[in-house]
Nucleic acid binder design. Structure first.
Lengths: 200, 200
DNA sequence: GTCTATAGACGGATAGAC
DNA sequence: GTCTATCCGTCTATAGAC
C-alpha cells in the first residue's frame, strides 16, 4: 500500500485517476479517443503528467489492461467457490462494461504488439479458471466429460455472454431473450444449490 | 455511377482500389491505421483522391462495410440451399478475414454513429438468414423447436465461429480443437447429405 | 480524374521552471 | 509532482492547377 493518506484524502492520486479516465474514455468513445490530452483533461491534470507516470501511451494502456485483468481474475476465482459456479461465470461475462473494454483492447491489440501479448496471457488465464469451474460443476453431476468437455462448455458460456454484450452495444437484440432462456434452462441442471439430476 | 469501362479494364478503378486498400489496412493494422494517406498510398494514388470519391473518411468506411455486407449476405443466402446448411454457415463464420474486419467495424461503431447504424442493420439481416437456415435444418430432423429454438442454434454457431477467429488473431487457441470436434459432432446430426440419425 | 500545396487541428513526447 | 512551452509529426479536408 503506497502513501498512507493523512488528512481528508480528497485527491485519490493522479496516477489512479489517469487510469480511470482512460477506462472511461475507451468505453465511451473507443480507444482511439483515449489520447494523452483527453485522458489528462478528464483526470483533471495536464497532459505532460501522463508521461511522468507512464513512459508511453502504450504503457498506460498496458497498466489499465493489467488492472482490469487482475480484478476480473479475482472475481472469477471467487466464482469457482460459488454454489452455482457456471451461472456465476455467465453473469461475470455478461457485464457490459467489462465486455466493452475487452473489445476495445482486442482492436488495440491488432496493431500494438505489447497489448496483444498482454491480452493473450490474460485470456489464457481466464480460460483456465473458467474451465476449472466447468469441470467441477459437470463432474459433480456425473456428466460424461468426453462427450461434453468442460473447456467447450466454458467457452460457450463465456463467449456467448460477451457476444451478446457486444451486440447490445450496437443495438442488436434479436434472439437474446431466447438465448438467455436457453442458457437458464441449461444452468438449472448444474446448480449445486438444488437437488442434482438431469431432467429428461 | 462513373465511367463505364470499355476495353480491357486493366486498372480496376481507383475507387475500387481505395476500398480494397482500406479493407487490407483495417485487417492488418486496425481501423485507426486506415487514414486517407495510408489508404491512398496502398491504392497507388494521392490522398486528395480519396475525397474525390468519398466526401469524408466515414463515407469510405460505410462504403467498405456495405460492400462486405452484401457479399457476405449473398454467400449466406447461397448457404441456405446447401446440402448441409448449418455447416455452411459455420464455415462462413469461421473465415478469419471476415471476422477480423467485423471486429474492427464493431470497435469503429463505438464512436461513429453512422457506422453503428449500418452495422446494426447488417447484423440483423445476417441473423435472419442464419435463423432461417437453422429452422430448415432442425425441422427436417424433427427437432423440438421449442426446446432448441433455431435462433439460439444459429447464434451459437455464428458467434462461436467468430469468437474463435478473434482469439486466434491474438494467439489464443486453448480449447479450439475440442470446440471444433464438438461442433463437428453436432453438425453431423443435421447433415441432409447423409441418412439422418447419428452416424460416426 | 488526378495531382500539388496547404490550412488548421490534434497527436506523442520532451525540456525545464516551480 | 505538476506545470508551461514547444518540437515535430500526422490527420482530415479543401483549393485550384493540369
Amino acid at each position: 500500500m503506497p502513501a498512507p493518506r493523512k488528512h481528508k484524502d480528497k485527491d485519490a492520486g493522479a496516477r489512479r485517476r489517469l487510469m480511470e479516465a482512460t477506462v472511461q474514455i475507451m468505453r465511451d468513445e473507443g480507444y482511439a479517443a483515449a489520447t494523452s490530452r483527453r485522458v489528462a483533461a478528464l483526470a483533471g491534470v495536464k497532459a505532460a503528467l501522463v508521461y511522468y507516470y507512464f513512459d508511453t501511451m502504450d504503457d498506460l494502456f498496458v497498466a489499465v489492461l493489467r488492472a482490469g485483468a487482475e480484478s476480473s481474475l479475482s472475481e472469477m476465482r471467487q466464482a469457482i467457490t460459488d454454489d452455482d459456479p457456471l451461472r456465476a461465470l455467465w453473469l461475470i461475462n455478461s457485464d457490459a462494461r467489462r465486455a466493452g473494454l475487452n473489445t476495445e483492447f482486442m482492436a488495440l491489440a491488432n496493431h500494438r504488439k505489447v497489448i496483444g501479448a498482454e491480452l493473450k496471457a490474460f485470456a489464457e488465464r481466464v480460460r483456465d479458471i473458467e474451465t476449472a469451474a466447468a469441470t467441477v460443476a459437470l463432474r459433480a453431476h456425473g456428466v460424461n466429460l468426453e462427450e461434453f468437455p468442460p473447456v467447450v462448455i466454458s467457452m460457450l458460456l463465456a463467449q456467448m455472454a460477451r457476444s451478446m454484450c457486444n451486440e447490445v452495444a450496437i443495438g442488436v437484440t434479436d434472439g437474446h431473450q431466447q438465448m438467455r432462456a436457453f442458457v437458464e434452462r441449461f444452468l438449472a441442471q448444474y446448480d449445486a444449490s438444488v437437488p442434482s439430476g438431469r431432467t429428461r
